[in-house]
Deep mutational scan, measured.
Amino acid sequence: MQRVNMIMAESPGLITICLLGYLLSAECTVFLDHENANKILNRPKRYNSGKLEEFVQGNLERECMEEKCSFEEAREVFENTERTTEFWKQYVDGDQCESNPCLNGGSCKDDINSYECWCPFGFEGKNCELDVTCNIKNGRCEQFCKNSADNKVVCSCTEGYRLAENQKSCEPAVPFPCGRVSVSQTSKLTRAETVFPDVDYVNSTEAETILDNITQSTQSFNDFTRVVGGEDAKPGQFPWQVVLNGKVDAFCGGSIVNEKWIVTAAHCVETGVKITVVAGEHNIEETEHTEQKRNVIRIIPHHNYNAAINKYNHDIALLELDEPLVLNSYVTPICIADKEYTNIFLKFGSGYVSGWGRVFHKGRSALVLQYLRVPLVDRATCLRSTKFTIYNNMFCAGFHEGGRDSCQGDSGGPHVTEVEGTSFLTGIISWGEECAMKGKYGIYTKVSRYVNWIKEKTKLT
């Protein structure tokens, strides 16, 4: 034993070699072989497995989906700052455009905790909710729209109204504003409101030439003092309507412009014939205590009207009353817009006519005020429907199939267009061939041609 100890002390290297040989010859039971080890760690190889990531292109799944990435790591994937920024906006807080917040056709661009709407022409605001041009839906104005110097929408209202708090709607500024039905039992019968379409306001006024200088022999019209197929109006439903009495009662109609003036057809009036105007009328054979009678003290036909040349060209006249009318729910003026808007309103496509005229061709006159909704007829169809001249200051309205029309005794009465609950004068009943005849239409004086003249002559002093 002493000898062994001496050998170990003198030859430590020998001992180490012996131990190493023993270990190498022993069977290893701690580690699995290569094949079995792979069965336990069965993990798919990654895209760049075996390579240094710093030297390969980034992978979106590896960089940002398996674990949260930084902007720089995302930049490695896209290799483009702009594309990385677009991805980053949604990656950080989701897609803010998912709810489609942009209105009126706006395009949404996502941002971090926010979004941006790219608005089409005519709109602005956070969600493109603000109209900035009158060309689109009248700028959301209830009545009139004008573009300011910086191309912003400025709404306005006709006389007797003021802008509401929203700067879009119009509200009454006087007790009985024009064009409004205020009798409670008839307010439910107000005709369907007309909503502004998209309009090209630059070209809204037709490029028409008034044929002022045409000389033409007097034409022989049949029954051209021209509501057939209409309905009984309720008291106060058309408070701007008046009836004219002269040699015979209810020979023509008219509309209240203001307390002192009536507008009617020029062919209705004769110099030297006494005319009485009755406002607030409903049943011409009954006294309903809503009527107001006034005498006409002055007749002003349009300066281009000449019955000797043509009885229905420039067929418009103004009547001055001896005493002002007292405005109330049964006696209310009709609204008159400017030339541009009167023309736009007419193009809405349908209007209402009213009167006490004959209820059928050569038949009896109506006792109760009649009204009828009539569609506008395109000019080409209008011209083809008659052998008589249709001037540019006239328009056609009615039904091709016949059966409904204005008729004798309705002449001078109103053709009105309702705009968001307020009625505007767009025409004056003038003439036609018979009444409600198939293929024939009622012919009306186009008020847009005469609004400046009306307003100039009827100013209240």
Rank of each mutant, 00 (worst) to 15 (best):
W453V: 00
N328D: 08
E320P: 00
K168Y: 11
D150F: 09
E285F: 10
G412R: 03
I136K: 09
T461E: 12
W453E: 00
H34N: 14
I7R: 14
I40F: 11
L369P: 14
C128Q: 01
C134H: 03
L20N: 02
F224N: 10
I428S: 01
E171T: 09
L211T: 15
R46A: 13
V199N: 13
F345P: 01
V154S: 10
C18S: 07
V447S: 03
T417Q: 03
N245T: 10
G246A: 09
E53K: 08
T84R: 07
I443R: 04
M394Q: 11
S99K: 12
D212R: 12
N245E: 06
T215L: 08
R379C: 06
L369R: 14
V56S: 14
G50P: 10
N5T: 12
D212Q: 13
L318M: 03
S255V: 11
E67D: 10
L52T: 15
G50I: 10
F424M: 01
N48M: 12
E340Q: 13
E340D: 15
S365W: 07
L130F: 10
Y450D: 02
V277C: 03
V228H: 08
M394C: 04
T287N: 13
A250N: 12
E281C: 10
G94F: 05
L189R: 11
C97D: 00
D410Q: 15
L20Y: 05
N151S: 09
T422Q: 03
R373W: 04
Y312D: 02
D110S: 15
Y391N: 15
V419I: 14
I297Q: 07
G427P: 00
T287H: 06
L383P: 03
R358K: 14
T445M: 12
N36A: 10
G442Y: 05
F71M: 13
G94H: 12
T332L: 12
G125S: 02
V377P: 02
N42I: 10
T190Q: 13
V228C: 10
E281Q: 11
H415V: 03
D212C: 07
Y352H: 10
V374G: 01
R404T: 14
A173N: 09
N343Y: 03
A266L: 02
C28E: 03
R379L: 12
S169E: 11
D150T: 12
E401N: 09
D33A: 11
K68E: 15
L23D: 02
D150W: 07
E76Y: 08
G421L: 03
G403H: 15
K362Q: 08
E82N: 09
L60S: 12
Q57V: 13
S156M: 10
H400M: 12
G349V: 02
E10Y: 04
V154Y: 12
